[in-house]
Design a protein around this nucleic acid. Structure first.
Lengths: 306, 306
DNA sequence: CCATATCATATGTTTTTGATATGTATAATG
DNA sequence: CATTATACATATCAAAAACATATGATATGG
């Protein structure tokens, strides 16, 4: 059996005429007669009754016609689908997040942009620590991940810097500094004597080290009172009055009760990056498309926002 | 595109291995490599990543694999269906009836036998007068018809005699003869003076003429009071007391109120035939099967019943 | 670093497909 | 009723496709 046989058969059945069908198929009549006969022989079934003015379908042919049409249509559909998948217009991608990433408006925005541009690509979102995300990326359980670390590069995984956002101080609502700084920025030195709550270095060394360095530049060594596994947990600890913290500014959108956010003075140069981790060679076209959409959007954002 | 390509593709995808797939397909490895490459070129899509220990499916290949399997299965299914149709195990037949035929138990019985033996053949039943049935047969709107006429043969339509059943007299319930013949047979001569209700000669000349001839043999010319379009209508007229009639015995199973049936004396040799009309050359295997089942069953019945 | 496994390439052979020329049968036509 | 036209079948040849064999390239694993 061969798709050619089905195509020839359908055309002959539609024309009721071998010669005309051959014309439509762009071949000569004798080969078409032969192919039809070959099909009949293979099936062991007569498909057409040869009349002096054309051919007539048998019951068997009528039974086959519908199926043949459907099969040919299915084949076309399948091929189109493969091409779409290869172009990345169809498929599935799994996107990972560091817990704090989705708070920055850029992330949900770019997800929506991609979804609108690739409606046949289904997206699965997954939260996790930076290390887990990178491992998952390497094991192909993930196609890309929004992370905050600037440099867990290497071994098949690359991180594209997308944008940086200022950080801000998170203070317990009743703290003395809250009143004193109402409507003003805070200098890092103001926090020199405070207890700090930071999220664990292993979970994301990038931010941790950056904060440490900034404090050092401001002339003090932060007293780390407590570490939390995630940024959100950090905020909860701050809310319970265990200390102050420094977090990406987008977190302030949370409006947690018991927490007051204060911008930091510009001079600190303390910013939190958002990066997109992905495989250096990625076989999934959908994933490649996703990465390029995100990076392009980030560049546009950078121009528009600065 | 070619079914061979799909078959090769599915095998390679399942084995993850061109060499092993070639083995399973009964061909050598180089042609298989070529065919896969040709398929990729035609699609403009890479389907496999060649690794030193086999090949790996791309997203596109995974997308195609399901469709390819389904299509190959559909093709097999379609071919099987064509063969079944050609053998008459699948399809549709339209069977006609003269209105009185289904009263004889043979008819429903043989229909059930055929249905049990050919579960994939759907049957459509159609009632009509003998002339209509034969015309429909000729125009291929019908595949076979149970009729009572012995001889509307000719022009592509043949009638196979199936069996004969005795006829009986149908009398209005209050008629004097009913009481006089309780538990006995009736001789035709007893009806010499009665008014007759017969169904129209044009609707079925066979029975009409047979009855006329039998009366003639019994020494009288029946007085036809009324004609009805169908046998069932005839009985209704008898029930209203318009006259007596002579009908196939199987009609007595109706147990109409107002009608008494009386067997006729054997000597009358008045029997009603049941025949099966069909085309002399029939292209539908299902129809041919139906005719042969009915005829075989009739022969068995004839042996068993006599 | 060598042996092994696996896919790719090159080249020749076989099979399949299609084209041309011709034959045959049936319906339409004068 | 003979003739013509139409359409399918058959025969033969040419072209293309598929396959086989031999060999090369490459990466893995001991």
């Amino acid at each position: 059996m061969d798709l050619r046989h089905l195509r020839y058969f359908v055309t002959v059945a539609e024309e009721g005429h071998i010669t005309r069908a051959a014309e439509r198929l762009g071949i000569q009549q004798p080969p078409l007669s032969q192919q039809i006969r070959a099909l009949e022989t293979e099936l062991g079934v007569q498909l057409f009754r040869r009349k002096p003015r054309g051919v007539e379908l048998t019951d068997a042919a009528r039974a086959l016609l519908g199926d043949a049409r459907r099969i040919l249509g299915d084949v076309d559909g399948a091929l189109a689908k493969v091409r779409r998948t290869a172009r990345g217009e169809q498929g599935r991608i799994v996107v990972g997040f560091t817990s704090s990433a989705p708070f920055h408006p850029f992330v949900p925005k770019v997800l929506r942009v991609f979804r609108d541009g690739h409606p046949r690509v289904s997206m699965v979102l997954e939260e996790g620590g930076t290390a887990d995300l990178v491992a998952a990326l390497r094991e192909e359980r993930l196609d890309a991940a929004f992370i905050r670390s600037p440099v867990p590069d290497g071994e098949g995984v690359a991180v594209h810097a997308l944008l940086r956002e200022p950080m801000c101080a998170a203070l317990p609502a009743g703290h003395a500094l809250v009143r004193r700084t109402r409507g003003r920025t805070l200098r890092l030195a103001d926090l020199a004597l405070e207890a700090f709550v930071l999220y664990r270095r292993v979970s994301g060394p990038g931010l941790y080290d950056a904060i440490f360095r900034a404090c050092h530049d401001a002339g003090f060594v932060p007293r780390i009172e407590q570490e939390a596994p995630r940024i959100v947990a950090t905020l909860n600890l701050v809310a319970s009055g265990l200390g102050v913290s420094i977090v990406p500014r987008s977190l302030s959108a949370m409006r947690l009760p018991g927490i007051a956010f204060r911008p930091l003075a510009r001079a600190t140069h303390l910013t939190a990056p958002i990066g997109l981790a992905c495989r250096t060679v990625d076989h999934s076209a959908a994933a490649r498309n996703f990465v390029s959409v995100v990076r392009r959007k980030a560049r546009e954002e950078g121009r528009g926002g600065s």
